[in-house]
Amino acid sequence: MKLCGKEASPVGLGTWKMGGGYWTPDYSKDDLYVSIIKYAIEKGINVIDTAEMYGGGHTEELVGRAIKDFDREKIIIITKVWPSHLKFHDVIESVKASLKRLNSEYIDLYLIHWPNPEVEIEETMRAMEKLVNEGIVRCVGVSNFSVELMKEAQSFYKIEANEIEYNLHHLEPEKDVIPYCESNGIKVIAYSPLAQGRVLSDKRVIDLAKKYGRTPAQIALNYLIRRSIPIPKASKPEHVDEIVSSWNFQLDKKDIEALK
Rank of each mutant, 00 (worst) to 15 (best):
K2L: 12
C4S: 13
G5Q: 06
G5H: 11
P10E: 03
P10R: 02
L13H: 04
K17G: 04
M18N: 12
T24Y: 07
D26Q: 04
D26P: 10
Y27S: 07
Y27V: 05
S28A: 11
D31Q: 14
D31F: 01
D31A: 14
S35E: 15
S35R: 14
I37N: 08
K38T: 12
K38L: 13
Y39T: 12
A40V: 00
E42S: 14
I45V: 11
N46H: 03
D49R: 07
D49E: 07
D49V: 10
T50M: 13
A51R: 06
E52Q: 14
Y54Q: 10
G56V: 06
H58E: 03
H58S: 02
T59A: 06
T59H: 02
E60M: 03
E61A: 07
L62V: 09
G64H: 03
G64P: 05
R65H: 09
A66D: 07
K68S: 15
D69P: 09
I76E: 01
I76L: 11
T79K: 01
K80I: 05
V81H: 10
H85E: 15
F88H: 15
F88V: 12
H89S: 14
V91N: 11
E93F: 06
S94F: 07
S94N: 11
V95Q: 06
S98K: 03
S98M: 12
L99Y: 09
R101E: 07
L102D: 15
I107E: 06
D108R: 00
L109F: 02
Y110L: 12
Y110M: 05
I112A: 14
H113I: 02
H113W: 04
P117G: 03
P117R: 12
E118T: 13
E120A: 14
E123S: 08
M125V: 13
M125P: 09
R126E: 15
K130S: 09
K130W: 05
V132P: 10
I136R: 11
G141R: 01
N144E: 11
F145L: 08
F145G: 04
E148H: 09
K151I: 12
S155G: 10
F156D: 13
I159Q: 02
I159G: 01
E163K: 00
I164V: 12
I164L: 09
I164F: 04
Y166G: 00
Y166F: 15
L168I: 12
H169W: 08
E172G: 00
E172F: 03
P173V: 00
D176N: 09
D176C: 01
V177H: 01
S183H: 10
G185E: 05
I186K: 01
V188Q: 05
S192P: 12
L194T: 08
L194I: 14
A195R: 02
G197M: 09
V199G: 05
V199Q: 09
L200P: 14
L200T: 09
D202Q: 12
K203N: 12
R204H: 13
D207L: 08
D207F: 05
K211C: 06
G213P: 08
G213R: 09
P216L: 03
A217E: 07
N222L: 08
Y223W: 15
Y223D: 02
I225H: 04
I225Q: 01
A234T: 02
A234I: 03
S235V: 15
K236G: 04
K236I: 00
K236H: 09
P237I: 03
H239M: 05
I243N: 04
V244H: 02
S245T: 03
D255W: 14
A258K: 15
A258Q: 13
